[in-house]
């Protein structure tokens, strides 16, 4: 079948497309152009998801399934309002287009950030837990709104088989997201006295999870995690780095003022390295037969500094 994948300029979507290319006819879309030297196994459109041109992509290719991996992350260099437009309005537009052009299956990559990092969090957060993120971090309201838009589509458009994935930290040797970059540092800052449990899913496990969600027949919201959890400082050591504790009363103002200039680290994500947000992914395992193939030790070792960043073959 024809599968439209968004966000294909990103590394994770690249892995997903590599897994799907033999089984499906792929169409790619992204707001960014493809990175230099990478080819896409199918037709690629550089387009914003809010644009009218997006409809043209649907009209021309009539995809049977849409894998929406094109969420702009809260850690990326972009203003809150730009992210809101792209993520929320873009996703709503994509849902409308799915309905209009008879797309059958719709897989969205959300984030576990929507649960929020809070000292009251219990461990093993299930999918029906309240989304605390917008309360404490208005900067990632776009992620929560995207989540709401998709869960809304779940009951509003029953004919569209919708799966929303909320993965934990995705890390891997080829990813260039905030968490992977953080764990490649020689000295990784931590908040003095705090050492929350963190979950990691290997990039390949996550790509596999997305494929499972595409090929399965269940619909709904699912957490995706790897093998258990480890404390932050332990994770840093597994990745080959050294934790450098910084007192939180210093870290918050400094990072806060720097992140206003979009430097260093987004302040609103600091709480995720202070309080645990540990999700329960047993529902996804049961419904889709998912099982991570990398242990948490292997996952973190694969991100680490010793890993040479490979350039993609042309």
């Amino acid at each position: 079948m024809t599968v439209l994948v968004t966000g294909v300029s990103g590394q994770l979507a690249h892995l997903v497309c590599e897994m799907l290319r033999d089984r499906h006819e792929l169409v790619g879309a992204d707001v960014r152009p493809l990175p230099a030297g990478r080819s896409f196994p199918g037709e690629f459109h550089c387009v914003r998801y809010t644009q009218r041109r997006m409809a043209e992509v649907f009209r021309r290719h009539r995809p049977r399934a849409l894998v929406h991996l094109g969420r702009l992350r809260g850690s990326e260099v972009s203003s809150t309002s730009f992210r809101f437009t792209q993520n929320v309005l873009g996703t709503r537009n994509l849902i409308d287009l799915c309905i209009r052009y008879g797309v059958k299956r719709f897989v969205v990559l959300g984030t576990f950030h929507v649960y929020g990092a809070h000292q009251h969090n219990h461990v093993g957060i299930r999918e029906d837990a309240p989304l605390r993120a917008s309360l404490t971090f208005p900067q990632i309201a776009d992620a929560v709104e995207l989540d709401h838009a998709v869960t809304g589509a779940l009951w509003r458009h029953r004919e569209l088989e919708t799966v929303l994935l909320r993965p934990c930290h995705i890390v891997g040797p080829s990813l260039n997201n905030l968490t992977s970059r953080l764990f490649r540092l020689r000295a990784v800052p931590t908040l003095l006295g705090y050492d929350p449990m963190l979950q990691f899913v290997h990039e390949r496990d996550c790509a596999r999870a997305i494929c499972l969600a595409l090929h399965g027949d269940r619909v709904g919201v699912y957490n995706v995690a790897g093998e258990g959890a480890v404390p932050y400082t332990y994770a840093i050591r597994l990745a080959g780095g050294r934790p450098v504790p910084v007192p939180h009363f210093l870290a918050y103002p400094v990072v806060g003022s720097l992140s206003r200039w979009r430097l260093l680290f987004p302040k609103h994500l600091m709480d995720y390295f202070r309080y645990p947000t540990v999700v329960d992914d047993s529902l996804f395992r049961a419904d889709f037969g998912y099982a991570p193939q990398f242990t948490i030790v292997e996952t973190l070792a694969s991100v680490g500094r010793q890993q040479v960043r490979r350039k993609e073959p042309a």
Binding site: V123, G228, A229, V230, P231, V278, I296
Partner: peptide
């Protein structure tokens, strides 16, 4: 019930 790193989900 610990994982390969020796921690359970609660820490």
């Amino acid at each position: 019930h610990v994982n390969s790193a020796g921690f359970d989900l609660w820490g």
